[in-house]
Write a protein that binds this DNA or RNA. Structure first.
Lengths: 226, 226
DNA sequence: ATTGTAAACGTATATTTAACACTTATTAAA
DNA sequence: TTTAATAAGTGTTAAATATACGTTTACAAT
């Protein structure tokens, strides 16, 4: 059909964020193939004829973390002509939010992966550092108007946990009284009668996030600033 | 280098917005090549080895509008396997904001182009309608926290013009007194002593947008809601 | 001089955000 | 079994911001 048109190599790279109840983390992998074998890198793969970019990204994530149906969002394309010294490759970066505790350990270990704090990211191959920086910026921006925080927390979580997560995202302390007021005003949480006593004697009630209310919240045109 | 990897066709498509002092408009082109010759479409082109996607998009825009250094932003990729019945093509959509009056008429006429109101968009080829819808959504969202409005206005503009533009973007009436208060509070406009008398006997003062103040406004972490 | 019209301006009220201090439930140690 | 320690949980007030609304002003056309 489009005969004399040039074809190019196209790849996807995945930025994988997690939250371990203390810090936001980035999952990086020690590369095992040339070029750059032994260096830290995002995970990625070339695209073939059979998959959309999204499907390809989901597949990569499954391969490396054992997780399916991960929150995944396109970040942007990276297409500088000489970004890969080997050969020209256009890469589409995706960023994903995961619950660290759900990640299948064997998958991660098999690939020599490691969770890094955002302020301790090692040197990365190619333009992967730029991708990561852009993803962090986007994560912070996005958090202001979409409640993506939930993708990073376990199914049941406490208010102090949720607050801590947002403190990590915004990188500043929040007032706990105002935080509670605000989050409850959105009316998207369901209280359980369970308590998490891992961090205090009193224990903190566990909440679940109410999918139905949440969806209508989204549908209306939310503004999630905290 | 990456020998046995498959290569694919990759294209860019451009969504071109403008504002004619009354409505936000979308520039569409009557396609002159097969497949779909004679149908309305976005402008686009296949990517070759020599240009980044951004450069390619700028080149396309120059070819079709005569404009250089247009405001241009990546929207997202479209990569469904069967999105183009001819052959598999991955397309990256960009959206651009232009000042209609600066567009070189001959360029536009040569290509059988037409500015459409957003509520009168004709049937488009492939998934171009989806691209356009996504672009409109993004435009509206973006306007809430970045003063992109300026890209759509001539260098000198009046407050009522600016207000009208935002009324078009948000698709609702704004209070003129509050609008003025808000926009002046950002302190990013410079008043000229010229008046535009095209819409009233009294005439409205023309303003320019103050690049320096604007940049620091952006740098700090603005919130441009109007 | 009068009239019509869009531009420009100000104020009062409601809502939202920001700042701040005490009480409660529980466990572990005395 | 009392006491001490600690994070969880709650309410109030002041400041800032957003909303709603009426009047005056400059100019051209009559």
């Amino acid at each position: 059909m489009y005969k004399n048109k040039q074809k190019l190599l196209i790849a996807v790279d995945c930025i994988i964020f997690g939250f371990d109840s203390e810090q936001i983390k980035l999952l990086l992998f020690k590369r095992k193939v040339e070029p750059y074998s032994g260096n830290w890198s995002l995970v990625g793969a070339f695209i073939n004829e059979n998959l959309s970019l999204n499907e390809a990204a989901q597949e990569i994530l499954f391969e490396y973390t054992g997780l399916k149906d991960i929150y995944l969002e396109e970040l942007q394309t990276y297409s500088k002509v000489d970004r890969d010294p080997g050969e020209r490759v256009i890469s589409v970066a995706f960023f994903s939010l995961t619950r660290i505790n759900e990640i299948v350990e064997e998958s991660v270990e098999k690939f020599d992966a490691h969770w890094f704090n955002l302020d301790e990211i090692p040197e990365l191959i190619l333009d992967h550092r730029e991708m990561v920086d852009n993803a962090i910026t986007k994560l912070r921006q996005k958090a202001r108007y979409q409640p993506i925080g939930f993708e990073l927390l376990p199914e049941k979580f406490t208010i102090p946990q949720l607050q801590l997560l947002y403190e990590c995202i915004y990188n500043k302390k929040l007032d706990d009284r105002n935080f509670r007021k605000k989050i409850f005003s959105y009316d998207i949480l369901t209280k359980t009668d369970l308590k998490d006593k891992s961090t205090s004697k009193k224990g903190a009630f566990l909440y679940k996030f109410n999918k139905k209310k949440f969806d209508s919240f989204i549908a209306n045109g939310y503004n999630f600033e905290l």
